[in-house]
Design a protein around this nucleic acid. Sequence first.
DNA 1: AGGAGCATGTAACTAGTTACATGATTGT
DNA 2: ACAATCATGTAACTAGTTACATGCTCCT
Lengths: 179, 179
Amino acid sequence: MALEHAILVSLAEKSASGYDLARRFDASIGHFWSATHQQIYKVLGRMESEKLVESNLVPQDGRPDKKVYGITADGHAELHAWLRQPSRPEALRSEFTVKLRALHLADREALAAEVQSRRDAHEAKLTEYESSEVRFFPEPSRLADDQVGPWLALRGGIRVERNGIEWCDEILQALGGPA
Amino acid sequence: MALEHAILVSLAEKSASGYDLARRFDASIGHFWSATHQQIYKVLGRMESEKLVESNLVPQDGRPDKKVYGITADGHAELHAWLRQPSRPEALRSEFTVKLRALHLADREALAAEVQSRRDAHEAKLTEYESSEVRFFPEPSRLADDQVGPWLALRGGIRVERNGIEWCDEILQALGGPA
DNA sequence: AGGAGCATGTAACTAGTTACATGATTGT
DNA sequence: ACAATCATGTAACTAGTTACATGCTCCT
Protein backbone atom coordinates (compact mmCIF):
# COMPACT_ATOMS: atom_id res chain seq x y z
CA MET A 1 0.00 0.00 0.00
CA ALA A 2 1.29 3.35 -0.98
CA LEU A 3 0.07 5.58 1.82
CA GLU A 4 1.84 3.34 4.30
CA HIS A 5 5.13 3.91 2.48
CA ALA A 6 4.53 7.61 2.08
CA ILE A 7 4.06 7.79 5.84
CA LEU A 8 7.27 5.83 6.41
CA VAL A 9 9.16 8.21 4.13
CA SER A 10 7.74 11.18 5.98
CA LEU A 11 8.43 9.74 9.45
CA ALA A 12 11.96 8.79 8.39
CA GLU A 13 12.57 12.49 7.83
CA LYS A 14 11.10 13.45 11.17
CA SER A 15 8.76 11.97 13.78
CA ALA A 16 5.30 13.44 13.79
CA SER A 17 1.77 13.19 15.12
CA GLY A 18 -1.14 12.19 12.93
CA TYR A 19 -2.09 15.81 12.78
CA ASP A 20 1.41 16.86 11.69
CA LEU A 21 1.36 14.18 9.00
CA ALA A 22 -2.01 15.40 7.80
CA ARG A 23 -0.51 18.85 7.34
CA ARG A 24 2.47 17.44 5.45
CA PHE A 25 -0.02 15.62 3.23
CA ASP A 26 -1.64 18.96 2.53
CA ALA A 27 1.67 20.39 1.38
CA SER A 28 5.06 18.93 0.42
CA ILE A 29 4.56 15.19 0.08
CA GLY A 30 0.88 15.75 -0.56
CA HIS A 31 1.68 17.24 -3.96
CA PHE A 32 2.36 13.66 -5.06
CA TRP A 33 0.27 11.60 -2.69
CA SER A 34 -2.77 13.08 -1.03
CA ALA A 35 -4.43 11.75 2.10
CA THR A 36 -7.03 12.95 4.56
CA HIS A 37 -6.52 12.97 8.32
CA GLN A 38 -9.12 10.21 8.69
CA GLN A 39 -7.17 7.83 6.57
CA ILE A 40 -3.86 8.76 8.08
CA TYR A 41 -5.13 7.93 11.58
CA LYS A 42 -6.54 4.66 10.33
CA VAL A 43 -3.33 3.60 8.63
CA LEU A 44 -1.18 4.78 11.54
CA GLY A 45 -3.23 2.55 13.83
CA ARG A 46 -2.62 -0.45 11.64
CA MET A 47 1.05 0.38 11.22
CA GLU A 48 1.47 0.59 14.97
CA SER A 49 -0.09 -2.83 15.42
CA GLU A 50 2.30 -4.13 12.76
CA LYS A 51 5.20 -2.52 14.71
CA LEU A 52 6.29 -0.38 11.78
CA VAL A 53 5.86 2.73 13.89
CA GLU A 54 5.63 3.42 17.60
CA SER A 55 3.99 6.29 19.41
CA ASN A 56 4.48 8.12 22.63
CA LEU A 57 2.05 10.51 24.17
CA VAL A 58 3.32 14.05 24.53
CA PRO A 59 1.31 16.21 26.94
CA GLN A 60 1.13 19.86 25.99
CA ASP A 61 -0.32 22.79 27.81
CA GLY A 62 -2.84 25.07 26.23
CA ARG A 63 -3.25 22.40 23.56
CA PRO A 64 -4.51 18.85 23.34
CA ASP A 65 -2.00 16.10 24.03
CA LYS A 66 -0.51 14.53 20.99
CA LYS A 67 0.67 11.10 19.98
CA VAL A 68 4.02 11.42 18.29
CA TYR A 69 4.85 8.58 15.94
CA GLY A 70 8.35 7.47 15.09
CA ILE A 71 9.59 4.83 12.70
CA THR A 72 10.83 1.54 14.23
CA ALA A 73 13.60 -0.79 13.07
CA ASP A 74 10.93 -2.93 11.38
CA GLY A 75 9.59 0.22 9.75
CA HIS A 76 13.02 1.06 8.36
CA ALA A 77 13.37 -2.48 7.07
CA GLU A 78 9.99 -2.27 5.35
CA LEU A 79 10.87 1.11 3.89
CA HIS A 80 14.14 -0.16 2.46
CA ALA A 81 12.51 -3.26 1.05
CA TRP A 82 9.93 -1.05 -0.67
CA LEU A 83 12.63 1.29 -2.00
CA ARG A 84 14.48 -1.64 -3.50
CA GLN A 85 11.58 -3.07 -5.44
CA PRO A 86 10.27 -1.21 -8.49
CA SER A 87 6.78 0.21 -8.15
CA ARG A 88 4.32 -0.72 -10.85
CA PRO A 89 3.98 2.03 -13.43
CA GLU A 90 0.83 3.99 -12.68
CA ALA A 91 -1.64 4.17 -15.54
CA LEU A 92 -2.97 7.65 -16.07
CA ARG A 93 -6.57 8.11 -15.03
CA SER A 94 -8.25 11.24 -16.12
CA GLU A 95 -11.95 11.87 -15.92
CA PHE A 96 -11.38 15.03 -17.89
CA THR A 97 -9.85 13.12 -20.79
CA VAL A 98 -12.81 10.76 -20.89
CA LYS A 99 -15.01 13.82 -21.14
CA LEU A 100 -12.83 15.34 -23.81
CA ARG A 101 -13.29 12.24 -25.95
CA ALA A 102 -17.01 12.94 -25.87
CA LEU A 103 -16.47 16.51 -27.04
CA HIS A 104 -18.92 16.15 -29.93
CA LEU A 105 -21.73 15.44 -27.44
CA ALA A 106 -20.84 18.33 -25.16
CA ASP A 107 -21.51 22.04 -25.04
CA ARG A 108 -18.39 23.66 -26.48
CA GLU A 109 -18.73 26.82 -24.43
CA ALA A 110 -19.03 24.89 -21.19
CA LEU A 111 -16.10 22.69 -22.08
CA ALA A 112 -13.94 25.66 -23.07
CA ALA A 113 -14.73 27.24 -19.72
CA GLU A 114 -13.70 24.08 -17.95
CA VAL A 115 -10.45 23.88 -19.90
CA GLN A 116 -9.73 27.49 -19.02
CA SER A 117 -10.28 26.84 -15.34
CA ARG A 118 -8.01 23.80 -15.49
CA ARG A 119 -5.43 25.98 -17.17
CA ASP A 120 -5.73 28.51 -14.33
CA ALA A 121 -5.27 25.76 -11.77
CA HIS A 122 -2.16 24.51 -13.57
CA GLU A 123 -0.83 28.04 -13.70
CA ALA A 124 -1.40 28.53 -9.97
CA LYS A 125 0.35 25.27 -9.10
CA LEU A 126 3.21 26.07 -11.42
CA THR A 127 3.72 29.44 -9.75
CA GLU A 128 3.70 27.74 -6.37
CA TYR A 129 6.21 25.10 -7.46
CA GLU A 130 8.49 27.63 -9.12
CA SER A 131 8.59 29.79 -6.05
CA SER A 132 9.35 26.68 -3.96
CA GLU A 133 12.19 25.96 -6.32
CA VAL A 134 13.83 29.36 -5.98
CA ARG A 135 13.25 29.37 -2.22
CA PHE A 136 14.42 25.87 -1.35
CA PHE A 137 16.72 24.93 -4.21
CA PRO A 138 18.39 28.12 -5.39
CA GLU A 139 21.50 26.27 -6.51
CA PRO A 140 20.42 22.91 -7.95
CA SER A 141 23.95 22.06 -9.05
CA ARG A 142 25.13 21.82 -5.45
CA LEU A 143 22.43 20.18 -3.39
CA ALA A 144 22.84 18.35 -0.09
CA ASP A 145 22.47 14.60 -0.47
CA ASP A 146 18.96 14.50 0.98
CA GLN A 147 17.79 17.42 -1.15
CA VAL A 148 18.28 15.80 -4.55
CA GLY A 149 15.17 13.62 -4.30
CA PRO A 150 12.82 16.40 -3.22
CA TRP A 151 14.25 18.66 -5.91
CA LEU A 152 13.71 16.04 -8.63
CA ALA A 153 10.18 15.45 -7.36
CA LEU A 154 9.50 19.17 -7.59
CA ARG A 155 10.97 19.24 -11.09
CA GLY A 156 8.47 16.53 -12.00
CA GLY A 157 5.64 18.62 -10.63
CA ILE A 158 6.81 21.65 -12.60
CA ARG A 159 6.95 19.58 -15.77
CA VAL A 160 3.46 18.19 -15.22
CA GLU A 161 1.99 21.66 -14.75
CA ARG A 162 3.79 23.18 -17.73
CA ASN A 163 2.69 20.27 -19.85
CA GLY A 164 -0.87 20.67 -18.60
CA ILE A 165 -0.88 24.34 -19.56
CA GLU A 166 0.41 23.59 -23.06
CA TRP A 167 -2.20 20.90 -23.54
CA CYS A 168 -4.99 23.22 -22.38
CA ASP A 169 -3.79 25.78 -24.91
CA GLU A 170 -3.84 23.15 -27.63
CA ILE A 171 -7.41 22.22 -26.70
CA LEU A 172 -8.55 25.83 -26.54
CA GLN A 173 -7.10 26.44 -29.96
CA ALA A 174 -8.90 23.40 -31.39
CA LEU A 175 -12.12 24.59 -29.76
CA GLY A 176 -12.01 27.79 -31.75
CA GLY A 177 -9.13 29.87 -30.53
CA PRO A 178 -8.71 31.76 -27.26
CA ALA A 179 -10.75 34.73 -28.65
CA MET B 1 -18.59 7.87 -10.41
CA ALA B 2 -16.24 8.03 -13.31
CA LEU B 3 -16.37 4.49 -14.66
CA GLU B 4 -20.11 4.87 -15.04
CA HIS B 5 -19.61 7.91 -17.24
CA ALA B 6 -16.80 6.34 -19.19
CA ILE B 7 -19.16 3.45 -19.97
CA LEU B 8 -21.88 5.88 -21.03
CA VAL B 9 -19.44 7.65 -23.35
CA SER B 10 -18.38 4.33 -24.82
CA LEU B 11 -21.93 3.03 -25.26
CA ALA B 12 -23.02 6.33 -26.79
CA GLU B 13 -20.49 5.63 -29.54
CA LYS B 14 -21.73 2.09 -30.02
CA SER B 15 -23.70 -0.52 -28.10
CA ALA B 16 -21.58 -3.31 -26.66
CA SER B 17 -21.46 -6.32 -24.38
CA GLY B 18 -19.56 -6.31 -21.11
CA TYR B 19 -16.85 -8.24 -22.86
CA ASP B 20 -16.63 -5.71 -25.70
CA LEU B 21 -16.42 -2.90 -23.17
CA ALA B 22 -13.67 -4.72 -21.33
CA ARG B 23 -11.69 -4.83 -24.56
CA ARG B 24 -12.28 -1.14 -25.19
CA PHE B 25 -11.02 -0.49 -21.67
CA ASP B 26 -7.87 -2.38 -22.58
CA ALA B 27 -7.30 -0.11 -25.54
CA SER B 28 -8.69 3.26 -26.68
CA ILE B 29 -10.65 4.66 -23.75
CA GLY B 30 -8.58 2.52 -21.40
CA HIS B 31 -5.56 4.72 -22.06
CA PHE B 32 -7.27 7.31 -19.86
CA TRP B 33 -9.51 5.23 -17.64
CA SER B 34 -8.69 1.63 -16.92
CA ALA B 35 -11.15 -0.98 -15.70
CA THR B 36 -11.22 -4.74 -15.35
CA HIS B 37 -14.02 -6.91 -16.69
CA GLN B 38 -15.13 -7.70 -13.14
CA GLN B 39 -15.79 -4.12 -12.35
CA ILE B 40 -17.39 -3.41 -15.68
CA TYR B 41 -19.93 -6.20 -15.14
CA LYS B 42 -20.63 -4.97 -11.65
CA VAL B 43 -21.21 -1.39 -12.73
CA LEU B 44 -23.24 -2.43 -15.79
CA GLY B 45 -25.54 -4.36 -13.47
CA ARG B 46 -26.11 -1.32 -11.30
CA MET B 47 -26.54 0.94 -14.30
CA GLU B 48 -29.17 -1.38 -15.71
CA SER B 49 -31.10 -1.31 -12.45
CA GLU B 50 -30.87 2.49 -12.58
CA LYS B 51 -32.22 2.38 -16.17
CA LEU B 52 -29.19 4.17 -17.59
CA VAL B 53 -28.57 1.26 -19.93
CA GLU B 54 -30.65 -1.62 -21.18
CA SER B 55 -29.55 -5.01 -22.44
CA ASN B 56 -30.82 -7.57 -24.83
CA LEU B 57 -29.58 -11.07 -25.11
CA VAL B 58 -28.04 -11.93 -28.47
CA PRO B 59 -27.70 -15.66 -29.11
CA GLN B 60 -24.68 -16.61 -31.16
CA ASP B 61 -23.63 -19.92 -32.57
CA GLY B 62 -20.24 -21.35 -31.94
CA ARG B 63 -19.90 -18.78 -29.19
CA PRO B 64 -21.51 -17.99 -25.86
CA ASP B 65 -24.58 -15.79 -25.99
CA LYS B 66 -23.96 -12.18 -25.21
CA LYS B 67 -25.81 -9.41 -23.47
CA VAL B 68 -25.56 -6.30 -25.59
CA TYR B 69 -25.99 -3.07 -23.67
CA GLY B 70 -27.28 0.14 -25.15
CA ILE B 71 -27.69 3.57 -23.63
CA THR B 72 -31.25 4.63 -22.68
CA ALA B 73 -32.84 8.09 -22.74
CA ASP B 74 -32.10 8.37 -19.02
CA GLY B 75 -28.54 7.37 -19.78
CA HIS B 76 -28.19 10.12 -22.35
CA ALA B 77 -29.65 12.62 -19.91
CA GLU B 78 -27.16 11.55 -17.24
CA LEU B 79 -24.31 11.72 -19.74
CA HIS B 80 -25.21 15.25 -20.79
CA ALA B 81 -25.62 16.39 -17.21
CA TRP B 82 -22.15 15.03 -16.47
CA LEU B 83 -20.66 16.67 -19.55
CA ARG B 84 -22.09 20.02 -18.50
CA GLN B 85 -20.65 20.06 -15.00
CA PRO B 86 -16.91 20.52 -14.55
CA SER B 87 -15.06 17.54 -13.13
CA ARG B 88 -12.92 18.15 -10.13
CA PRO B 89 -9.26 18.57 -11.04
CA GLU B 90 -7.49 15.30 -10.34
CA ALA B 91 -4.54 15.57 -8.00
CA LEU B 92 -1.54 13.70 -9.26
CA ARG B 93 -0.75 10.55 -7.33
CA SER B 94 2.56 8.97 -7.96
CA GLU B 95 4.07 6.27 -5.84
CA PHE B 96 7.26 6.68 -7.84
CA THR B 97 7.54 10.34 -6.89
CA VAL B 98 7.15 9.48 -3.22
CA LYS B 99 10.01 7.04 -3.65
CA LEU B 100 12.08 9.59 -5.49
CA ARG B 101 11.77 11.96 -2.56
CA ALA B 102 13.43 9.29 -0.44
CA LEU B 103 16.31 8.98 -2.88
CA HIS B 104 18.93 9.54 -0.18
CA LEU B 105 17.71 6.38 1.61
CA ALA B 106 17.63 4.27 -1.53
CA ASP B 107 20.10 2.29 -3.58
CA ARG B 108 21.04 4.56 -6.46
CA GLU B 109 21.74 1.71 -8.88
CA ALA B 110 18.36 0.13 -8.23
CA LEU B 111 16.60 3.45 -8.57
CA ALA B 112 18.42 4.28 -11.79
CA ALA B 113 17.34 0.90 -13.17
CA GLU B 114 13.77 1.66 -12.24
CA VAL B 115 13.91 5.07 -13.87
CA GLN B 116 15.31 3.49 -17.00
CA SER B 117 12.51 0.95 -17.13
CA ARG B 118 9.94 3.69 -16.67
CA ARG B 119 11.60 5.56 -19.49
CA ASP B 120 11.31 2.47 -21.69
CA ALA B 121 7.63 2.14 -20.84
CA HIS B 122 7.04 5.80 -21.72
CA GLU B 123 8.91 5.31 -24.98
CA ALA B 124 6.79 2.28 -25.86
CA LYS B 125 3.55 4.09 -25.14
CA LEU B 126 4.70 7.12 -27.08
CA THR B 127 5.46 4.97 -30.11
CA GLU B 128 2.04 3.38 -29.85
CA TYR B 129 0.30 6.75 -29.55
CA GLU B 130 2.27 8.27 -32.39
CA SER B 131 1.44 5.43 -34.72
CA SER B 132 -2.22 5.76 -33.73
CA GLU B 133 -2.00 9.42 -34.60
CA VAL B 134 -0.67 8.87 -38.11
CA ARG B 135 -3.09 6.00 -38.68
CA PHE B 136 -6.30 7.55 -37.40
CA PHE B 137 -5.66 11.28 -37.62
CA PRO B 138 -3.39 11.85 -40.61
CA GLU B 139 -4.84 15.29 -41.25
CA PRO B 140 -5.57 16.91 -37.89
CA SER B 141 -6.55 20.20 -39.51
CA ARG B 142 -9.62 18.64 -41.09
CA LEU B 143 -11.17 16.23 -38.65
CA ALA B 144 -14.76 15.03 -38.58
CA ASP B 145 -16.71 16.55 -35.71
CA ASP B 146 -16.61 13.40 -33.57
CA GLN B 147 -12.89 12.93 -34.17
CA VAL B 148 -11.69 16.14 -32.55
CA GLY B 149 -12.18 14.87 -28.99
CA PRO B 150 -10.39 11.57 -29.48
CA TRP B 151 -7.58 13.36 -31.29
CA LEU B 152 -7.14 15.88 -28.45
CA ALA B 153 -7.20 13.05 -25.94
CA LEU B 154 -4.47 11.28 -27.88
CA ARG B 155 -2.47 14.51 -28.05
CA GLY B 156 -2.70 14.63 -24.25
CA GLY B 157 -1.36 11.09 -24.04
CA ILE B 158 1.51 11.93 -26.36
CA ARG B 159 2.38 14.95 -24.24
CA VAL B 160 2.32 12.96 -21.02
CA GLU B 161 4.66 10.33 -22.42
CA ARG B 162 7.09 12.83 -23.91
CA ASN B 163 7.11 14.73 -20.67
CA GLY B 164 7.70 11.49 -18.77
CA ILE B 165 10.69 10.67 -20.96
CA GLU B 166 12.21 14.10 -20.43
CA TRP B 167 11.75 13.87 -16.70
CA CYS B 168 13.35 10.41 -16.61
CA ASP B 169 16.33 11.83 -18.49
CA GLU B 170 16.58 14.67 -16.00
CA ILE B 171 16.56 12.18 -13.13
CA LEU B 172 19.12 9.91 -14.78
CA GLN B 173 21.39 12.87 -15.30
CA ALA B 174 21.09 13.90 -11.67
CA LEU B 175 21.81 10.31 -10.61
CA GLY B 176 25.15 10.44 -12.31
CA GLY B 177 24.66 10.58 -16.02
CA PRO B 178 23.38 7.90 -18.39
CA ALA B 179 26.90 6.38 -18.65
C1' DA C 1 -3.27 -32.00 -25.71
C1' DG C 2 -2.90 -27.26 -24.67
C1' DG C 3 -3.58 -22.49 -25.13
C1' DA C 4 -5.99 -18.43 -26.73
C1' DG C 5 -10.21 -16.10 -27.41
C1' DC C 6 -15.16 -15.54 -26.30
C1' DA C 7 -18.41 -14.71 -22.65
C1' DT C 8 -20.27 -13.94 -17.89
C1' DG C 9 -20.09 -13.61 -13.45
C1' DT C 10 -19.34 -14.11 -7.64
C1' DA C 11 -16.72 -13.41 -3.36
C1' DA C 12 -13.46 -11.51 -0.46
C1' DC C 13 -10.73 -7.90 0.27
C1' DT C 14 -8.20 -3.23 0.26
C1' DA C 15 -8.11 1.62 -0.29
C1' DG C 16 -10.09 5.78 -0.09
C1' DT C 17 -14.05 9.26 0.67
C1' DT C 18 -17.65 11.63 3.21
C1' DA C 19 -20.10 12.55 7.13
C1' DC C 20 -20.19 12.86 11.93
C1' DA C 21 -18.26 13.73 16.62
C1' DT C 22 -15.77 16.16 20.48
C1' DG C 23 -13.41 19.80 22.92
C1' DA C 24 -9.88 23.25 24.22
C1' DT C 25 -7.40 27.75 22.90
C1' DT C 26 -6.34 31.80 20.26
C1' DG C 27 -7.33 35.53 17.37
C1' DT C 28 -10.89 39.09 15.21
C1' DA D 1 -19.83 35.78 19.40
C1' DC D 2 -17.52 33.30 15.69
C1' DA D 3 -14.05 31.26 13.11
C1' DA D 4 -9.59 29.10 12.85
C1' DT D 5 -6.09 26.04 14.64
C1' DC D 6 -4.82 22.09 17.35
C1' DA D 7 -5.82 17.25 18.12
C1' DT D 8 -7.99 12.63 17.66
C1' DG D 9 -10.95 9.65 16.18
C1' DT D 10 -15.55 6.41 14.49
C1' DA D 11 -18.99 4.92 11.06
C1' DA D 12 -20.91 4.28 6.76
C1' DC D 13 -20.08 4.08 2.25
C1' DT D 14 -18.00 3.82 -2.64
C1' DA D 15 -14.59 2.35 -5.79
C1' DG D 16 -11.42 -0.71 -7.21
C1' DT D 17 -8.41 -5.11 -6.99
C1' DT D 18 -7.48 -10.02 -6.72
C1' DA D 19 -8.80 -14.54 -6.64
C1' DC D 20 -11.96 -17.92 -8.04
C1' DA D 21 -15.34 -20.15 -11.18
C1' DT D 22 -17.43 -22.08 -15.55
C1' DG D 23 -17.65 -23.69 -20.27
C1' DC D 24 -17.45 -23.67 -25.34
C1' DT D 25 -14.72 -23.22 -29.89
C1' DC D 26 -10.90 -22.66 -32.77
C1' DC D 27 -6.06 -23.05 -33.81
C1' DT D 28 -1.47 -25.36 -33.54
